[in-house]
Design a protein around this nucleic acid. Sequence first.
DNA 1: CGACTTTGACCTGCGC
DNA 2: GCGCAGGTCAAAGTCG
Length: 188
Amino acid sequence: MENYLSFLPFSSNSSPPSSSSLSLNTVNNSTLGNNKSNIGFLGLMSEMEIPTSSNVNIIGSTTQINNVNNSQSSEIDHQVLKSGKKKGDKKIRKPRYAFQTRSQVDILDDGYRWRKYGQKAVKNNKFPRSYYRCTHQGCNVKKQVQRLTKDEGIVVTTYEGMHSHTIEKSTDNFEHILSQMQIYTTSF
DNA sequence: CGACTTTGACCTGCGC
DNA sequence: GCGCAGGTCAAAGTCG
C-alpha cells in the first residue's frame, strides 16, 4: 500500500502509470529494494507447480486468455462454485486459467479492481498464495497469485471465472499488455 | 468513513 | 474415520 509502485515494463514511450498502460502493485511484504521489474511472460506452467486443482488450464499463448474464457466458461460460469457454505452443491469449479510472469512484484494490474480475501501458506512453497476477488458488483471473478519457490522471480497468476463488466481503469488495456508479452514468449 | 488488508478459524475434499 | 491441504469467511486493523 505504501509501497505502491508502477512500472512501464515494456516500452519507454508510455505515459505515467497510475492510470494507463501496465502498472504493477507492489505488495508490502515483497522484497523491495531494487525496483527492477523485469517482466517477461513465461506462459507455460507445469502442473507440478500448480497443484491446486485438476482443471487448471495452462495458457500457452497470451492471446488465448480472453478467448478461452469467453468460449468455455459461458455455460459453466453460472454454475455454483464450491462455496464451503452451501451443502449439497455440486463441486463444479469454473475453469481456471493460469499464466506465469517474471516480475519482481506480485500483482499484475490488469485494469480490474481486486480485493484480497485470503492468504494461505502452500505446501512445498515458501511463498504464500494470495486470493483476490473482483470488487465489481455481481462479478464473481477470482484470482490467485503465487510466487514460485524454485524461481523467486516468477509469479503465477490464476484466474477463475469471467468478468461480467468492462475494465474499470482506463488502461491501455490488457490486450495490449498481452500482445507485448507474447513477444517475450516467442523469443524464449 | 469507506475501501481494503490481515489473519486465525472454519469448512470441504481427498488420500490413506 | 482421520489428518492434511486448499479455499473461504469475517472480525479487526490499516490507510487515504
